[in-house]
Amino acid sequence: MNSVNTQANIELTSACYDRKPVTGEHTLQELPLSGKINIRGDSANAEIFSALEKAISITPPVIPNTKVSNDNVTVYWMGPDEWLLVCDIDQVSTISEKIRQHLGTLHHAVTDVSDYYTVLQLSGPQSEALINRGCPQDLHPSVFPAGSITQTRFGHASILLDRQADETTWHIQVRWTYAEYLWDYLVSAMDAL
């Protein structure tokens, strides 16, 4: 019997694998798959907070829409009882296990969401205007300087925007199945500039 190509053997580590990286004045590319761990636990509960802090060796952010990072991980504030930890893909199970051990029977949830989201990197002098084609938030550097993060909307997609240190590079985290939509929207926005 002839085998049918079911794509089962393709290693799906990219959500935009059939899109070529955009080069030129503005660049757009998908970043290599990173490890992402969603952590739920009440930040107002001191026992939970200190156990988590010990487990990941960094103080999780408690101010809305901020992040903290060290050499190994970046932790994003997602809600008053929710964080997103981004790490190397190989570290996911080690870090998850460590968090579970430290939090023990305390009320919490640790979920591997590495392949639920992907991250697009947009860069260029007018990148702010490009994002504002689909995003209603004020991104002027006076209110949204380098290092700022926010959960917001781009068109119909919910995104996590992370402004990099150089101000004109952005990491846009989006749900896997919305990645091509976001990609094509940004490309058409570039054409319309």
């Binding site: 809305p64 008053p80 959960q151």
Partner: peptide, 10 residues
């Protein structure tokens, strides 16, 4: 109450 003022479409 957490994120501050945002556009209504969010």
């Amino acid at each position: 109450p957490w994120c501050g003022e945002r556009d209504q479409s969010e």
